[in-house]
């Protein structure tokens, strides 16, 4: 499998009246063809912003991409002009979003919202696009697709709207699908259906998926590889089995301890992480997790550890070994 997307040293900032928010602080990762990469972390740790930055979807201003590159098929997405990016978005790289209730335009028909990608990117005529849209709706599990093209978003339930979003995102058979917490706003049974649908569509189209979530339970079922983000940094990167079996960063350890597991005793109390993520208005000094870390040592307060490989396919950004508690 070749590398499809290679993001290097991406930094995104937002200028706000209170000061500069350092949302993404120099992250690097790769995505292989057909791979599913999960990006996990608490709310506000830069997961969404790092993906929106790659597609040029953050509002500029106040947003600003301070540095970095995002190589996709020989192009640097961060250097493309807006019209050039338009030919990538929706055609090569698609997104689905967290809020199915507000992510669809309330005053346009579902048919219009699906066919406009087809007509813009693939140059289909009205009739062909409509037939294709009806097929897409059926393929994401909306029966009677041809009829429902004339309906408006408010005539669909939350889960159905997310299916419509998926149909829109997959309309042009993209090579990357970025799913930004697509199940967060849905109830649990619908969540499982949506995850199942994305897995099935991934196999059909053969695309790579970046799945942004704070739900480690979902990650286990879908991802090949996981990136753990904290305060705009990547703190751990591992394949999914290793991450669950053997977390190496104190933050990942804490996240997994906060997760209910079927193989644990019922009276086992879930462990919450004390404190809150750091204020991103302040330029981070030292390790951003130091204040909440159980393993913190002197060095953590002054130096921020870089993401470094510790084993094949594994990287962490930490000064200590969580197994022994000793500095590495």
């Amino acid at each position: 499998m070749g590398t499809l997307l290679e993001v290097t040293d991406l930094r995104t900032r937002f200028s706000t009246p209170e000061g500069v928010v350092h949302a993404v602080n120099g992250i690097s990762y790769t995505l292989a063809e057909g791979e599913t990469l999960a990006v996990v972390g608490e709310s506000g740790c830069g997961k969404s912003v790092s993906m929106l930055s790659v597609l040029g979807l953050i509002p500029i201003p106040p947003g600003q991409i301070a540095s970095g590159s995002a190589r996709y098929r020989g192009m640097d997405l961060l250097k493309l002009s807006e019209p050039e990016l338009e030919t990538i978005r929706g055609r090569e790289i698609s997104m689905i979003f967290q809020e199915p209730m507000t992510s669809l335009n309330p005053v346009l028909t579902i048919g219009r919202q699906i066919t406009e990608s087809l007509r813009t990117h693939l140059g289909m005529d009205h009739g062909t696009a409509n037939r294709r849209a009806a097929e897409l709706l059926e393929s994401v599990g909306i029966p009677d697709g041809g009829q429902r093209l004339r309906d408006y978003p408010h005539q669909f339930s939350g889960g159905m709207r997310q299916r419509v979003m998926i149909a829109i995102a997959l309309a042009c058979a993209p090579s990357i699908l970025i799913a930004d917490e697509p199940t967060t706003a849905l109830d649990v049974t619908i969540q499982a259906q949506i995850v199942e649908l994305v897995i099935q569509m991934r196999q059909q189209i053969g695309m790579a998926v970046i799945w942004i979530t704070h739900d480690l339970g979902v990650v286990a079922g879908i991802a090949d590889r996981v990136i753990v983000m904290y305060a705009g940094f990547i703190v751990e990167e591992a394949d999914v089995e290793s991450l669950y079996a053997d977390p190496r960063h104190p933050y990942t350890v804490a996240l997994l301890a906060a997760l209910p597991r079927a193989d644990r005793r019922r009276d086992h109390r879930l462990k919450s992480i004390p404190g809150a993520p750091p204020n991103l208005l302040v330029k981070p000094q030292g390790c951003p997790f130091a204040r909440r870390c159980d393993f913190v040592i002197e060095r953590c307060w002054s130096d921020n550890p870089a993401l470094a490989p510790i084993a094949p396919g594994r990287k962490i950004a930490c000064w200590i070994d969580v197994k022994t508690g000793a500095p590495r």
Partner: peptide
């Protein structure tokens, strides 16, 4: 959000502004 969706679909800017 639906404007962000429209942009993520790669629609030309005039379509986003004058229709969506």
């Amino acid at each position: 959000d639906y404007i962000r969706t429209a942009r993520s679909k790669g629609l030309p800017r005039p379509v986003i502004i004058y229709l969506h």
